[in-house]
Simulated assay, not measured.
Amino acid sequence: MKVFVFAFLLVTAGVNALPQQYFEDEYSSRDERIVTGNIRRAIEELAKSIKEAGLDPLDIDKFEFEGSFAPDFVTVKTYIESLEFTGLSNIAINRLDYGALTNRLRFDISLPLLSLSVGEAGVNANIFGTLFTGQLSGSLKITQIRLAGEIRVNIGIISGISLRSVDANFRVQRIESNLAMKFQDEDYSELVDSILNETIPQILEIYKDEIDKNLSEIIKEVGNQLLGKSVTTGDQVLIA
């Protein structure tokens, strides 16, 4: 944090003595590279950690579990065969730029495709003498989960860095569900596919303004909390 404040004071003191072209070409571009470079590296590290955790791709040939959580009252048996999940670590940076003069970060990040396929999965649970059964198979694809928007930043010599405003937009291009689901021997496949293919996209479209507003407020609140923590502990912060 001290390094950033010193750099900011130095630039502010000397800005009037520098030609405008020099300021725009040298300072602005350098500052943008620092900020966007840090963000890109953070995203790359996130993608790497997802892969190292075995979550992308996630392949399960066969898995079985049987246990009792309350002897003679709750027993559960579950199994999964031929499950494959991909796309979680494929984080695409469609746009990422930071304006040093305006302290504005514009971003457009997406997951191009999340794909899930299940050969067969099921659960049998006996809860206080009542048997519950469920089976699932099929596939689910979600195309272009996108988060885009703009973040404006306040930089104070004493107060440090804070997020002045956040304007975020969350969109999902398409959901394709082809799942077969049974519960208690009743077929709910058509209902589940209808909810995923039609109802959820309609809800996202109808309430997109409310979703964007609430998401923007959450990002701003969490971001300012993280920045406040970093300033308190004396960490070096360039942008959130």
Rank of each mutant, 00 (worst) to 15 (best):
F8E: 01
L9S: 06
L9I: 12
L9G: 02
A13G: 00
A17G: 11
P19S: 05
Q20F: 08
Q20I: 13
Q20V: 08
E24T: 07
D25A: 14
E26T: 12
S28Y: 00
S29A: 15
R41E: 00
L46F: 13
E52G: 04
L55S: 03
P57R: 00
F63W: 09
P71H: 03
P71M: 09
F73R: 02
V74L: 09
V74M: 09
K77A: 02
T78R: 05
I80D: 05
E81W: 02
E81T: 10
E81S: 14
E84V: 11
F85S: 10
F85M: 15
G87W: 04
G87N: 05
A92N: 13
D97L: 15
Y98I: 07
G99D: 13
N103E: 10
R104N: 15
L105S: 07
D108H: 06
S115V: 02
L116P: 11
A121P: 00
G122T: 08
I127D: 05
F128V: 13
I142W: 01
T143V: 12
L147R: 05
A148W: 07
V153S: 01
G156D: 11
S159G: 10
I161T: 07
S162I: 08
S162E: 04
S165M: 11
V172H: 04
E176D: 15
N178F: 11
N178R: 02
A180K: 14
A180Q: 15
M181R: 05
K182W: 03
F183D: 10
Q184W: 03
Y188M: 14
S189C: 11
L191S: 06
S194A: 09
I195A: 08
I195E: 00
N197I: 05
I203L: 07
I203K: 01
L204R: 00
E210F: 00
I211V: 08
D212I: 13
K213F: 00
L215A: 07
S216R: 04
E217A: 07
N224Q: 10
Q225F: 08
G228F: 00
K229P: 04
K229V: 08
K229L: 12
T232H: 06
T232A: 09
Q236L: 13
V237N: 03
L238H: 14
A240K: 06
